[in-house]
Design a protein around this nucleic acid. Structure first.
Lengths: 392, 392
DNA sequence: AAAGTTTGTCTAGTCAATAAACAAAGATTA
DNA sequence: TAATCTTTGTTTATTGACTAGACAAACTTT
């Protein structure tokens, strides 16, 4: 059942609209907001006044006159609160402290060898504490903590499985909630990366965006109709386990011929070792390619071609506006992107192909953290409209 | 930019909410509507009175007392208007006249051999005329004409390509608009089928539903978050051209190893002829299987297995609540469904597998027409909220 | 027959938006 | 330089949709 509508809702939505307009077009005057939104000048004045009382926006002196009284410009008060946003990766944890506009105030990466849940969580708590202590005094303090993880996460924030960490059934959101009295968001790393690229990166003008996170495995985040699509219980985007070779080799997931068996870091290293590279890593192979070793170049191009097979599928399935390739294999951009493009050019259906843009992640290693920041910020402003904020 | 909110919008939305409640729970009293929606009794009375003036609902005598005054029951006036809904197939056109609840009032199928655009369109016009002349007198008359077509359709209703009809660039919506002065909807056959199953068929309680239309080729309709997902320009769901065999045979679409090369009617017939069946058809093969011919049974099971490969991909990609298999190959349900299930059981990831239900289309040959009816009806009620209705 | 319940309407009041008037502060022009 | 025009932002009166609560009608229960 849909919701019931009344003047309360109207006010809430209009206030959100004014705030959104200020966020997007700052610095902007009350008069311009009225013009842009179609709201009455008086209504805008009253809503702006409330937003100022809540310290969510600021006046920032007068702007240039356009033939009359000079306008008072309004800005988002991006220092009203801060987010703690974390990318919990396979070999390191990257944490950032951001303001409400997503500016990074402080950043720290901790590397680790031992995957043990307790040890990694201990590092995570330490990192969060350090970020927290670096937050300047502000009206709302830390408004949320978000963690992106390389695994299957339920809508309740439980990590069901993180294969490359060897984790099973870790109720991370619940655990963090017991430590910190702020909203906690736990999300899959590819979903977060997709949202990060949509809000702050390559996809700022796209509503239909697919983000392929290519690392040890492949995860995919889907932005459909401008929103993150999570499926029934949060398990969408397992395109790493899409069969592209129906009688292919067995994957540990139980399926056969999965995309990531041919087009991931793991696949690359396997092939490299078959071709005589010992203790190979992505770094080594890219370096070798940069030094002109044709064997290395061929390996990367082969990888790109396989990536292209899956991305062609994506283009046929979703008719997206943009496909963004991110995570560690972005390092090999120079070699894999032309190979992907070649495959798409050759194999994708014309109608769908003409609509799509292929890009690498603009935020590079920050796609996931910035996605988590975007989630935190979004939920904070949403809560602000529902009058459930806690001030310091 | 989002929309501006005011009391007008509030009223429109609440009126729609009341109408929706009556549609879903009829017969229902004003008092119950107030309780269910949370609206005030007076508000409901006033909105109901307007809906009665518009002839969209009816009073239908009194209901049972529950210890006090007997309630006046309200019903949707399903005879306030009629839709003309058509499934333009490869060898026949199926047309239905429905009321506003989707009840079929009149039905007609015309078969054809010659794919020529002009000839088929002539038959289409004839069919529409016949349906129209069978519509009883009503307040709003024919409220919309919808046509589902087996091809790539733009959001503007132009058929870019219908490979199995041999059609290219037919601006069907524009052509129909010139003949008939009512809203026209042209949509891909699989998208319509998906919506039909969602609204009237197997998916009435699912919000995440994938409908695979398996016929000469394979088309897929996506219901995500309760709504039809069309991608950037309407070309989503081309899963028939998802590669499941990366070095597979060339498809006429330009790609390699496409799903429909292994799991469609065409694939079945090809295999059948290789196995000694001459001039084979789906009907023949199913009949042979029913007669216990193991060769035929094997062919159908093989087809089901290949369907299962693609459906497993779907389950991994979308984490759907339901996957529905429809169109002509539904005929072979008995043989293909167990094979699909077996493949899913063996290969799909547990988390995703546990969430999903596999079903055949409940509406059978009517999935597409009923989807078109649902589109027509939805757009009519939407227009009614915007005061743009034309009465007879 | 009296008392209690439920339904649906009516009236007064509230709240948020709008339109229009107005004051403040600037630009333009004679 | 003064008068006039523009633009901004606030204030005031009005409108419209919803809500709460009173009330009459119609029915059940005691």
């Amino acid at each position: 059942m849909s919701q019931t509508w009344n003047q309360h809702v109207v006010k809430k939505e209009n206030k959100a609209l004014v705030l959104e307009t200020i966020k997007e077009k700052a610095p902007i005057s009350r008069a311009s907001i009225a013009q842009v939104t179609g709201l009455n000048k008086g209504t805008v004045s009253s809503l702006v006044s409330e937003l100022m009382d809540e310290k969510l926006i600021n006046e920032s002196g007068t702007g240039e006159s356009s033939g009359g009284r000079r306008p008072v410009m309004l800005l988002l008060n991006e220092r009203a609160g801060y987010t703690i946003s974390v990318d919990l990766g396979v070999k390191s944890i990257l944490g950032v402290l951001t303001d409400l506009r997503g500016n990074i105030i402080y950043e720290k990466r901790i590397r680790f060898q031992n995957d043990n849940v307790d040890e990694v969580l201990h590092l995570l708590y330490t990192l969060i504490s350090e970020l927290k202590s670096n937050a300047p005094a502000s009206e709302y303090g830390i408004v949320g903590i978000g963690v992106g993880v390389p695994g299957v996460v339920t809508t309740e924030g439980e990590i069901l499985l993180a294969p490359n960490l060897g984790w099973k059934r870790v109720p991370l959101r619940k655990m963090l909630s017991e430590h910190y009295q702020v909203p906690i968001i736990v999300e899959n790393e590819a979903n977060a990366g997709a949202y990060g690229e949509k809000v702050y990166g390559a996809g700022q003008f796209s509503t239909e965006l697919v983000y392929a996170s290519v690392s040890v495995g492949i995860g995919v985040g889907l932005i459909l109709d401008g929103k993150l699509y999570k499926g029934l219980r949060g398990f969408s985007g397992e395109l790493g386990h899409m069969t592209i070779e129906k009688d292919g080799v067995d994957c540990r997931c139980g399926n056969k011929g999965c995309w990531e068996l041919y087009a991931s870091e793991k696949a690359l290293i396997e092939q490299a070792e078959k071709n005589g590279y010992h203790a190979a890593s992505v770094d080594h192979i890219v370096e070798a390619a940069n030094n002109g070793e044709s064997k290395a170049i061929k390996l990367l191009e082969q990888l790109g071609d396989y990536l292209g097979v899956g991305i062609t599928n994506i283009i046929h399935i979703f008719n997206p506006e943009q496909v963004v390739v991110g995570n560690t294999l972005q390092l090999a951009e120079k070699y894999i992107m032309p190979a992907i493009e070649k495959r798409i050019e050759k194999n994708a259906i014309g109608f769908n192909k003409n609509d799509v843009q292929l890009n690498v992640a603009k935020l590079k290693k920050h796609s996931t953290v910035m996605g988590m920041a975007a989630f935190n910020i979004e939920q904070f402003f949403k809560a602000s409209g529902n009058d459930v904020l806690v001030r310091n």
